[in-house]
Write a protein that binds this DNA or RNA. Structure first.
Lengths: 134, 134
DNA sequence: TTAAACAGGATAAAATTACTCCTAAATGAA
DNA sequence: TTCATTTAGGAGTAATTTTATCCTGTTTAA
């Protein structure tokens, strides 16, 4: 697993919205204030919406807001929403990648590491991050 | 951190050479038997040689061999030899990536996860993998 | 009806990954 | 010495993934 810029942006989006949970936040606003490209942020917020992490409202005065409290949103949620399932070796996801799976003595290590990562990422929620920020 | 195909190949190289530690293994042989592109394997073995994981001998009857016993070579060694230092977010390596570092409440988590990964990868050596393979 | 805001598909640019190729250097043997 | 064999290393190419951008459509409040 590698944290891409897209995921970094997603985290910033959540962090931004967590500061005012009641308000509807517009793409333009979030992008400008967090220094991210607007059209890319639009795509990312779509993904977060599909993952039910944020709600979206169309039309005049529309925007985005967290659908859960910051304490209910974990790093794992956000990463999986934008990147898909966690893994460190694509052989775990893509069967074509490694035909040797059944013979491969290293494979169980990738699985173990994935599980450790998932566990860890689950433990950090956005209330925790906001405390430290503000 | 993501395990690239290059690293997968590097691991196969070590695994292959660990089967006959006394012998000098030629690029062509390793590549053919482990089903990897020869010229790419050549580059990977160069990296492993620079990292002092394998020794190389030029000329007729030349080839590669492990420079240490399988038990002394860890997953971490091999991964770092081909991919460089372990990280999951490039903000930890590339200063340009995130100007917000000092403000960023998530950054310590990336550090923590990196340390966990390093610890884990250190614990698996190639004697362990060979036992299971054959 | 209109302007403001998100939805979604297509596509383009940039970066990284996954290679290949070519020439040079080393080495052992004829 | 010379030649075939083997790695060294630089440069370049192809494929894939990441990082966007743009355009058209839909929703909504005024």
């Amino acid at each position: 697993m590698k944290i891409t810029r897209e995921t970094d942006y997603a985290i910033r989006c959540i962090l931004h919205m967590a500061q005012e949970t009641e308000k509807l936040h517009m793409i333009t606003d979030i992008a400008k204030k967090q220094d991210m490209p607007k059209s890319f942020v639009a795509k990312i917020l779509q993904k977060l919406a599909k993952a039910k992490i944020v709600s979206s409202t169309r039309g005049v005065n529309g925007g985005f807001a967290l659908r859960k409290t910051p304490s209910e949103i974990t790093l794992l949620h956000v990463i999986e929403a934008v990147q898909g399932p966690i893994f460190i070796n694509s052989c775990m996801v893509d069967n074509k990648r490694c035909s040797r799976r059944s013979l491969c003595s290293v494979h169980p290590v990738w699985i173990e590491i994935r599980n450790i990562l998932i566990d860890k990422l689950k433990k950090y929620d956005f209330q925790f991050f906001c405390k430290k920020t503000g």
